[in-house]
Write a protein that binds this DNA or RNA. Structure first.
Lengths: 350, 350
DNA sequence: ACAATTTATGCAATCGTTTGCAAAAGTCGA
DNA sequence: TCGACTTTTGCAAACGATTGCATAAATTGT
């Protein structure tokens, strides 16, 4: 260290070859200034003289220097990373690969990238890990958290929301809740679905999906209220979201009930698709024998046979909304929840 | 600070209420030991006396203490985070939400979580940001990198692979390449698709998809070689992957060519699905008038009408393979690429 | 040419953990 | 009871960047 040019075969500017320039201190030494100056120059602060800045920038470029973000994060107490938690509670086998979550995640990635944030993804299984949310928040690795889906963790999320501000959750809004949530009015969506089914002549309804998850429960309730108002019975066909189980369970439901119902409200488009395939296999005509309405309006809803009538959630708007709210909360603002109006998209399945 | 019990309304153990215990030093003070000891105790190192460890653990629990991961990362020079880069090069409008990538990402999340790693997701647009890969690697925020899709960045990835070990890429394998890649034998998959189409009687083939992306090019080449061997002509119908464009482009292709072809090899299942929907709309019978083969075998391939014959990539195995290879490279091992054999799944569309 | 400013830079503390080394405390046999 | 060990702990130096404060340099006015 004390004899710079002695050990190495000593090509004049050979530093480029074997990148010893990993830290601000290295760069400072080469540039003949202090680390403070280098830091300021690279940060684009105005206090550095033009010449010096240019020289430092050139050297940084030439030696391929990059700031160590971890050190920077530690010192600045901010990371530029938003945590995304996907709790897999109500259905442990549900894959992260669930189409709706993945679509939402894609848009979140777009929105956050646009604002200069990175995403840290964490898949959590709440019943194995009581402490998941606090661990994520307390790690210091994220500036804020987006939770995708309340799963069965409503209570815990509520509790944390009382003391941690920068958190926005995708899910269902309940009267008087504390945490900031973005989502569709699932109740209303459920109503729209049931109304359509009944308007199309259905008189014996079924709800296809697991009504213990908060969001699905609201969809169910909405549909049920309409069914009740029309004196139409509605049964529940509980179904897991894990792709491997789903098909079998739907098949079994159809075995038992296909003859006794003439309208199905599926809790998600994926369920509706599986259901359509199952009905087609049994030569049951859709919508003539059984009407089917889905929920989400994923891109593939347009491509089913017959094309799926479904309740549209604007996932992109939701994702951008979540990011917007989170950034405002990070800035200290108090924000309301964002409840979006779902919209019935009529195609041919009902 | 010098008079612990004076200022506050002084409930004996009131520290619990207003969490002042944020750092090891805080905890050390309360426990009456040094930070070093606390650190060791919480890390589960054997050098700490049982009693002391228990006491410290109890206090940590009681005050809801959590290690600051950022500081820990800095000191240990490892973060426990794997970076996932999704380059959107050959088709800038392609959403991160592309079904195949999302499925792969889901499995990667499963595999990495299982191994105790977090995921940091970064969506990159290479032509806007020359330096994307080096920036990601050099940030110090990730221990290794998985790249999902080579896009049109083959050269850059090759270059980086020469000096950065912990990187595994999903994509196509080319003769003599340096970077460690996991993917299917796309050429073989293409052959299988074409063979099936021809065996089912197709004599005028079309390849549906954009053959400039590396992986698709290999699928095309494989199919073409079989077509040539059978003296069967094959045209190319280039199509973007952006969901909004895709449908229109496929429709326009069908307008122009539907009458002139009797077998379609779609570069992805999604394309195949859109294609099926388009053909159904035109009353063209599948597979009688036109046979269709897809690629990927996404879960929804089973649910199309008619169910899709497709070339299966075992995405789950691929994801777990990528993670396995990456961890071995992190451990210093030298690893070969993993080229998986695709498998034709015969359903009803061809 | 000199004092009064305004700019640019350097110094050193700080962010919160981890860990090598040394000192303190505990254990044991004789 | 004392020396020779073995466990436990404390001390303080890293990890690499940022930033308030102080000093050095450049600029300005007179």
């Amino acid at each position: 260290m004390s004899e710079p040019d002695t050990d190495r075969p000593a090509a004049p500017d050979a530093a480029t070859a074997d990148r010893p320039v990993r830290t601000l201190a290295d760069l400072a030494r080469i540039a003949g200034v202090s680390t403070g100056t280098v830091s300021r120059a690279l940060a684009g602060k105005s206090v550095v003289k033009g010449d010096t800045r240019k020289k430092i920038e050139a050297l940084a470029q030439q030696h391929g220097f990059r700031l160590n973000q971890v050190a920077s994060n530690l010192r600045r107490q901010r990371t530029g990373v938003i945590g995304i938690a996907i709790p897999l509670g109500h259905d442990r086998r549900q894959q992260v690969s669930d189409a709706f979550f993945m679509t939402l995640l894609g848009y979140l990635a777009d929105a956050l990238t646009e604002k200069g944030y990175d995403l840290m993804l964490r898949r959590v299984i709440p019943d194995r890990d009581e402490d998941w949310l606090d661990r994520f928040i307390g790690s210091g690795m994220v500036d804020g958290v987006l939770v995708i889906g309340q799963s069965d963790q409503f209570a815990r999320i509520e509790e944390v929301a009382g003391r941690y501000r920068p958190m926005v959750v995708w899910g269902n809004h309940q009267e008087g809740q504390r945490h900031c949530v973005v989502g569709s009015d699932n109740r209303l969506g459920g109503k729209q679905a049931a109304e359509r089914l009944i308007a199309q002549g259905a008189r014996r309804l079924a709800f296809l999906g697991d009504p213990t998850a908060t969001e699905f429960a609201a969809r169910y309730t909405g549909a049920k209220s309409v069914a009740d108002a029309h004196d139409v019975p509605m049964i529940t066909l509980p179904t897991h979201l894990a792709p491997d189980r789903m098909a079998k369970e739907v098949a079994s439901h159809m075995d038992q009930h296909a003859g006794a119902i003439d309208g199905i409200f599926a809790a998600t488009d994926i369920l509706a698709m599986v259901c359509l395939a199952e009905l087609a296999g049994r030569q049951i005509a859709v919508p003539d024998d059984i009407r089917v309405v889905g929920f989400d309006d994923l891109p593939l809803a347009e491509q089913t046979a017959p094309p799926l009538t479904t309740v549209r959630q604007d996932i992109r708007a939701g994702a951008f909304g979540m990011v917007d709210l989170l950034l405002r909360r990070l800035a200290g603002e108090e924000t309301e929840s964002l409840v979006m109006q779902p919209e019935l998209v009529v195609r041919q399945s009902a």
